[in-house]
């Protein structure tokens, strides 16, 4: 079951797996963390979410796994939508989404194996199946040799590879990566990107937020630019720290 979907062919189709319709998010008395966002993400896409710190990238990602709900508008993820979702359904939704964070969010006192196996344990799979899938994933991210080590003993690059393996454990609809290379050096960052690209080639949708423009400048993927809680039109320019990036001419 897991094996068959893991080996699926790359496919980009018209079906909008994630849809944002006029989404606005206000945090307490601070309005406009996101302003009137309209966006569609398709199955099999590799999408880059770009923009400076505080531009609303993380807020947009949190809406997808319903860590927050929109103040106005509607977020639809596969068969779930933000207007009519119960806490129990949020749990189910999250089991279908893999999330990778800048700070890895591994359980440090658990072994590498247990960290990767956790989503499968939560789902209640059998032990034999969990062992099989976890070992295959650790092999894929080149971390099998460290399976029995506590996560706390790993290097930052290794931690992120383990976090990606954990995100992939349930063969998710999409992997959301929020600045996954933010704490990593150039080589480790490239490894993480390569890993995400490899999973995307096998059919997993990826949405990666980053402001590491050097890393992604040669990639052919769709780019979404954010600034001040809004999605900028293509062809406009955006100020990112010292860099001035000229937007690539791609549809939002």
């Amino acid at each position: 079951m897991q094996g068959s979907t893991r080996d699926r062919k790359p496919n980009t189709c018209d079906y909008a797996m994630i849809r944002f319709s006029q989404v606005t998010v206000n945090y307490g008395y601070v309005p406009g963390a996101l302003k009137d966002i309209n966006l569609q993400l398709h199955k099999g896409d590799f999408t880059l979410l770009l923009g400076p710190t505080g531009s609303g990238k993380s807020t947009l990602l949190r809406l997808i796994y319903m860590d927050i709900l929109p103040s106005a508008g509607l977020v639809t993820v596969d068969r779930w939508n933000s207007a009519r979702i119960s806490p129990r359904q949020i749990n189910l939704l999250r089991r279908n989404i893999g999330v990778v964070f800048q700070d890895f969010r591994l359980i440090e006192n658990m072994t590498v194996f247990d960290n990767v196996a956790l989503p499968l344990v939560i789902e209640g799979y059998r032990r034999k199946y969990i062992r099989q899938v976890t070992q295959a994933l650790l092999d894929e991210v080149n971390m099998l040799a460290a399976a029995d080590q506590p996560a706390s003993t790993l290097s930052l690059g290794e931690k992120q590879r383990v976090a990606i393996a954990r995100a992939m454990a349930k063969d998710p609809l999409i992997v959301i990566a929020d600045e996954p290379t933010g704490n990593l050096d150039r080589e480790a960052s490239q490894n993480v990107l390569n890993l995400l690209e490899r999973f995307n080639r096998h059919g997993t949708s990826i949405l990666m937020a980053t402001h590491d423009y050097e890393l992604i400048k040669e990639t052919p993927y769709r780019r979404i630019y954010m600034e001040n809680g809004e999605i900028r039109q293509p062809d406009s320019s955006i100020n990112v720290g010292k860099e001035r990036i000229i937007m690539m001419n791609r549809d939002v």
């Binding site: 749990n91 189910l92 999330v99 989503p119 939560i122």
Partner: peptide
């Protein structure tokens, strides 16, 4: 508390 937050993101239910 970090572990609990991580488990929530992974879709763990309240009872678990």
């Amino acid at each position: 508390r970090d572990q609990i937050a991580i488990m929530k993101i992974l879709g763990a239910g309240n009872l678990f």
